[in-house]
Simulated assay, not measured.
Amino acid sequence: MFSLNDRKLTIGPMLAKIAENWPAKVISIALAIMLFVFHRMSLQEERFFSVPLSVETDTSLTPAGPYPGLIGITLRGDANTIYPILEDDIQAYIDLNKYTEPGTYRAPVQIRKKGTALRAEALEISVDPLEVILSLDERLSKTISIKANFSGALEPGYELGEYTLDPAHVVIEGPKGLLTDVSDLFTNSIELTGRSVDFSTTVRILNQQPLLSIRGNGLIEFHGVIREQLRIQNFENIPIRINNLDEQFAGELEISAGSIRIEGGQTTFNKIKPQDVSLYVECSSIDSIGEYLLPVSALFPAMFTLMRQDPENVLIQIRRRQQHSIGNGGS
């Protein structure tokens, strides 16, 4: 059995041997560690994508100037770790809740993980940019009107009459300095091309200012009434007829012709013919000779509206027809 002195004699030369050329041995160990780390790093992969940037502020303030809408994300790790991660499970945000007065502030971009990102081990996440400078202003709301925005042209001969928007007004929110200049918003384009009948559609409100938000779902119900374009046309030198005069009488008009002006749909005028329009005086109530002032009536298709008529009344001279008897030259 070895004694304590024997052990000392054995350990001493060992320590001396280990300490021999110790600087070179330390460098060798450091190089080995570095080679191991570099080897592990060479086995890691990178994945790049972008996620929306959310801004968290005090409820009385809101962003008042442009800022990056997307943040670049870099995931670093082994393939089995980084590729199963869903992009929606990485959230980028800046926290400005501690600021309660309007102004311009600088804040770091932070990452919030959820879902698949929480289960990933040995995961490195970096962002670009690292920080954001952002202006804040007082948050206000305002009720404004909505106007329809049209494109295209209706069928020839038709026009858009009245239309309704439901809702006709919406509430928008945004920074005080920007909201002051907004008086109304337009819908997205409502296509009219080729239409000739009433129609309804759902259309989104056009919001060209990302710093403004619209309460509700941002959708508008549109209903439009389409009608024929109106046209007015004159008809001249229309003979005035004598209607239903007793056969024992004959009538002579002071004015034998007149004119009318009618209004109707643009396409409807293409179907009307000159013989479809006439003027007459009604004589069924006359039972004796003499001079009468009678109203002149106009006949035209029911889809038209009478705008003007000339004459409105006319003098007619009624005389008795001559009776001729045949035989012995008598009359």
Rank of each mutant, 00 (worst) to 15 (best):
G329L: 11
G329V: 04
D181N: 09
T202F: 08
E155D: 10
I255P: 01
P156Q: 15
R227W: 02
I125L: 12
L4A: 14
E254F: 08
D246K: 12
P63T: 01
R231Y: 12
R76I: 05
V277I: 15
I18A: 14
S183P: 01
P210F: 08
E159N: 08
G290E: 05
N328R: 14
S331N: 11
M307K: 07
P102R: 14
G69N: 13
L134E: 06
A120Y: 08
L61Y: 05
A32F: 11
M34W: 07
L185Q: 02
R76N: 07
L192M: 13
S28W: 02
A148F: 05
Y280W: 12
L293F: 08
F269Y: 10
S288E: 14
I18T: 03
E56H: 04
K113W: 02
G65S: 15
S297T: 11
P52C: 05
G290C: 09
G264S: 04
T81E: 06
I85T: 03
S285V: 00
I316P: 00
G65L: 00
L160Q: 04
F304E: 04
M303Q: 14
I71P: 09
G264P: 08
R308W: 11
R231N: 09
H223C: 01
G103M: 02
I232H: 10
E247L: 13
R47D: 15
R47H: 13
I220V: 15
H223K: 06
M34N: 12
P13M: 00
V51Q: 06
P66M: 09
D276R: 07
H39F: 13
I125V: 15
P108H: 04
T100F: 01
I71N: 07
I289R: 03
R204T: 10
L230K: 13
D89I: 10
G251R: 04
T74C: 10
I289M: 03
R47N: 13
F150D: 08
E263R: 09
Y292I: 02
I255L: 12
